[in-house]
């Protein structure tokens, strides 16, 4: 009986420690970060920062978006982020109003770019986890499917 009480008390103490640690964990920083600061005054480009943006029902992530406002802005984005080339078939698709999604890992190695060609918009997501990456990707695929 005494042993059972000891085990119960230990379990309760462990649970208390876990709950305390959960509440004391560092809050996620939603500061726009270096990427936003670097590009926010770039001419021809609208730069946005979406703190805690909801991708579907179960995922929220901080996202930097860049949208070209004119052809100069688009050209700058193309060279700055080394947009992958489009083949002739996809060029034709764009001409008929069908979107083409492109994705690649940025030079910093920790961010993934998702480019919607039809919207001339680039979405950059820090990939903290595989699950987060997959959900952001799924969001873009569903968006393209439903357009």
């Amino acid at each position: 009986m005494k042993r059972l009480i000891t085990i119960t008390l230990c379990l309760l103490a462990a649970a208390l420690v876990a709950v305390t640690a959960w509440h004391l964990r560092p809050a996620p920083s939603h500061a726009p970060g270096k990427l936003f600061s670097r590009y926010e005054h770039q001419p021809g480009v609208r730069v946005g920062f979406l703190a805690n943006f909801a991708f579907g029902d179960s995922l929220r992530a901080d996202v930097v978006t860049l949208e070209a406002l004119d052809s100069a802005g688009w050209l700058w984005m193309q060279s700055e982020f080394a947009f992958p080339q489009l083949d002739a078939r996809r060029d034709s698709l764009l001409a008929t109003g069908t979107d083409v999604l492109q994705t690649w890992i940025l030079a910093d190695g920790s961010s993934v770019a998702f480019l919607s060609r039809l919207d001339s918009a680039l979405c950059i997501v820090q990939t903290d986890s595989e699950q987060q990456f997959e959900k952001v990707f799924m969001y873009h695929l569903q968006k393209m499917k439903e357009q």
């Binding site: 992958p84 489009l86 083949d87 996809r90 698709l93 069908t98 979107d99 083409v100 999604l101 492109q102 994705t103 690649w104 890992i105 993934v112 595989e130 990456f133 997959e134 990707f137 695929l141 393209m144 499917k145």
Partner: peptide
Amino acid sequence: SKKMLHLGFSVTIDF
């Protein structure tokens, strides 16, 4: 796509 990205490819998708 994830495998290709990790191998250094860029991925283009249409539906």
